[in-house]
């Protein structure tokens, strides 16, 4: 269920984009910015408010890798698995990290919702591969040791 405050914010988003057909992606991006993911209720709301079929919104949302449909962790860790990072050992780094954070196989977020580990294809910092982004901060030339130290800082006491 959406709170009335959330409804207000969603209405504001729709208005900001003039309810235009071409605004589907920017609206979804704003929704994700607001909630941290794209909740079904919110999509239904914006679709209705913009007078477009809900299915169209979901069709677009599921096409693009950027949109997440489940709530995400408190800390977002983005691991690059682009080519340059891959050849510099990002695969092992990511495997170790997933194990350390206790993220179940096939999932992105740990059960306690402390951490989300997502993989992306290249963040454009390939010359300092392997690259891990921790809560929007770019860390280059990563090693398992360095990574574990960073993670430790984020763990609740």
């Amino acid at each position: 269920m959406l709170t009335s405050e959330q409804v207000n914010k969603l209405e504001e988003i729709c208005k900001r984009h003039n309810k235009a057909q071409s605004a589907v992606i920017p609206v979804l991006q704003d929704v994700q910015e607001l909630f941290g993911y794209v909740p079904e209720d919110a999509v239904n709301f914006v679709a209705d408010s913009m007078g477009m079929p809900r299915s169209h919104f979901f069709g677009v949302a599921t096409f693009y890798a950027q949109f997440h449909f489940k709530p995400r962790g408190k800390n977002i860790i983005t691991a690059c698995s682009g080519t340059a990072c891959h050849v510099k050992g990002s695969g092992r780094l990511i495997d170790n990290l997933a194990r350390e954070l206790g993220i179940p196989e096939g999932e992105e977020t740990s059960r306690d919702r402390q951490f989300t580990l997502e993989k992306v294809n290249c963040v454009g910092a390939c010359s300092i591969a392997p690259v891990i982004i921790i809560n929007k901060e770019v860390h280059g030339k990563m090693s398992s040791d360095k990574l574990m130290k960073e993670i430790k800082k984020l763990r609740p006491e």
């Binding site: 698995s81 682009g82 294809n121 290249c122 454009g124 910092a125």
Partner: peptide, 11 residues
């Protein structure tokens, strides 16, 4: 710039 391993345009 979707090529994973390229960052010319970004720079």
């Amino acid at each position: 710039e979707g090529d994973p391993g390229a960052f010319m345009d970004r720079s």
